[in-house]
Amino acid sequence: MAPLELLLELTLMPLVAFLVGMMMVLMMRRIAARIQRRVGPPLFQPLYDIVKLHSKQTQVSHGLIHDIGIVMAMGGYIAAETLLPVPGMNGIAEKGGIITLLYLMMIPSLGLALGVGQCANPNGSIGIARALTAMLAYDIPLVIVIFGVAYAAGTTNLVDIIAQQQAGGFATWGAVQMPLLAVAGLIAMHASLGKQPFEIYIAPAEIATGPMVEMSGKHLGGLFVMQCFQLYTISVLYVSLFLGGGSTWFDFLLKSFLVLAIPASIAYLFPRYRTEDLLRLMWKWPVMLGLIGVAFVL
């Protein structure tokens, strides 16, 4: 892997991630619109939002840490992208396995938490407290699922995992090998998106959109960018763990969008869970399914 080529990959992967991520945000909003029987935003609406937010005259900031928080949020996901192998480009997946990826995905939430903390708004702090509790909730099933897959594949290197799954075509897909883990993974993934039934920490009615209460202008723009990366990372992670990654670009994108469509369609049908109900749900079903799945794998 010539260093120049690696460098090219390291820049291309986040860019691809951003574009696909924007398309995913668009798809989410289109599905929501269709469910609520309205037309939904035009094709490039996410891009327009980001550009509008970044070009506001009065940008309000509560201090350096507030800005650094947003930068960490975006930066964390950008770094996570390079660890996600995409058809044709492996980035530095060999240098750090799934566990490193899992931890890299925690950096943005910590960065966001710091930024919101600096805004000195109780709503923001309550939102962050709930966000971290939610993270505690969905991370446990996610970890069980990752343990199952990594133990089955015998390695934490994503490139090998995908290679093993693609070796036998459809029959050796993770979902087929470990159906229970796949279902648990889906629920955990849905929760980590922070979409409708699990979005207690954004709860507009109670805590005025929680962490986003003091975010405006480029800060909010940064969070939108982070959201695109977040959707992309989670769906691609699920695809590479259970659906055998993408052998060609078309099949890779199809799978990712399909995977994301499932939670998107479920999302807007349910009211919000309270924090402790979220915890109870997450620690009951997905954990049960995950543990049984792992028992099979062992």
Binding site: P14, V71, M74, G75, Y77, I78, A79, A80, I107
Partner: peptide, 8 residues
Amino acid sequence: LFAGFGIG
């Protein structure tokens, strides 16, 4: 990671 922070 720091490259990502730079881009951000």
